[in-house]
Design a protein around this nucleic acid. Structure first.
Lengths: 205, 205
DNA sequence: GGTCGCGTATGACATCTGTCATCTGCAAGA
DNA sequence: TCTTGCAGATGACAGATGTCATACGCGACC
């Protein structure tokens, strides 16, 4: 019986990393990299055209994040298995990746051999997730921030003052202070800088 | 005349990326990856043992940064050519890399072929730096922060309050406020969060 | 010896941040 | 219909931040 190669789409905005990973995967007898993209918003079109079995998606990409691209793939080409391959093994990323329909979640500090192996595993219907990350993601609990709280907190992340945030989001300054105060309390922080850091760590921002 | 292969040491804390880059380089006829390390503080010992011609160093690694490792390589094994290969093409990183003795500076969003090419170029005594980055680094000017200002600003980066910073650095709170105020003014920021962001962007932090 | 810059400190003061109480409108759910 | 939560707002107040003036010790440099 002939061996059928797995068709893989690879998305990562760093050309050097993407091409190196493509080269590595291409050395496997049973894997063929049929498409490479550098932007999240190119994933879906490339998947339609090249009909991959598996999509390997970085998270932080221009256009759309890998998680957003995963959601669109799941909606339109549900037969494509999705593996998130990311730099930061953040619990929040893991949760959002699973919510978006990914079958696997790899961090780039894993051995390279795990990449090819993960492709084979998701094709067999298996899930590939680091147990420690899974535990952390479950321990963090659900995102307690409302949409506007998150937006105001994000706006505060670069050091903008309340008046500026108010102007930018078309709110009064008092309202901004209220939202920030609530976000600070929900994250258990003492000030907005800590709140931003904690929310990012937990994947809420 | 026989072709002599270039011996390369590769340092990157992400195994998947490092091994993929090693595989890519290994496909070149004239390049051999003789050592791989995941920590900055393993670079020097590995270089002593494996006698590479060229060291490819990521910047953000545990133990020592690639820039710190570059400085030590330059001091002890000055015949090793140093290429910094980093995720973030920050002008500040470029400046510090050159100050540490690196011959080349690549950002990972460059095509993979540039990596092997850069290895060959530094061996010929050439410099490999993106001109746009070089211009930005020169435009930023020298770091205006004193040692203590930088230390206090760094301590403030995670949202620590003045009292906490004072305790941690064994200073009075008033002194901390003075240092922060001066750092804010030197960076042209309006508050500590902006000062941190600007200093990071310019490579002063 | 004098000057300069850095490190460190105190005190006063203006501004900003963060908290809290209170209020209204709206939509969803019981 | 009533309750709940979210969005948005105002006002008062306490505490934190940031600015500024002033001062001293120390080491480097002229």
């Amino acid at each position: 019986m002939t061996v059928r190669t797995v068709r893989v789409l690879l998305a990562d905005d760093q050309s050097m990393v993407r091409e190196a990973l493509a080269t590595l995967l291409g050395l496997e007898d049973d894997i063929e990299v049929v498409a490479q993209v550098a932007r999240g918003d190119e994933v879906l079109a490339a998947a339609r055209e090249h009909t991959p079995d598996v999509a390997l998606l970085d998270i932080e990409m221009p256009g759309l994040t890998g998680i957003e691209a995963a959601a669109r793939l799941r909606a339109e080409l549900p037969e494509v298995k999705i593996v998130i391959v990311t730099t930061f093994g953040r619990p929040g990323y893991l949760r959002r990746a699973m919510e978006s329909g990914a079958e696997a979640f790899l961090v780039k500090d894993a051995p390279a051999s795990q990449l090819a192996e993960a492709v084979r595993q998701v094709l067999r219907g298996e899930r590939v997730i680091d147990p420690g990350l899974a535990a952390a993601a479950l321990a963090d609990g659900a995102d307690p921030l409302t949409g506007r709280e998150r937006e105001v907190l994000r706006a505060a992340a670069d050091g903008s003052v309340n008046a500026e945030i108010a102007r930018r989001l078309l709110l009064s300054e008092g309202t901004v202070r209220n939202y920030l105060s609530t976000a600070i309390q929900k994250t258990g922080a003492r000030n907005r800088a800590e709140a931003v850091r904690i929310a990012r760590e937990k994947g809420w921002l």
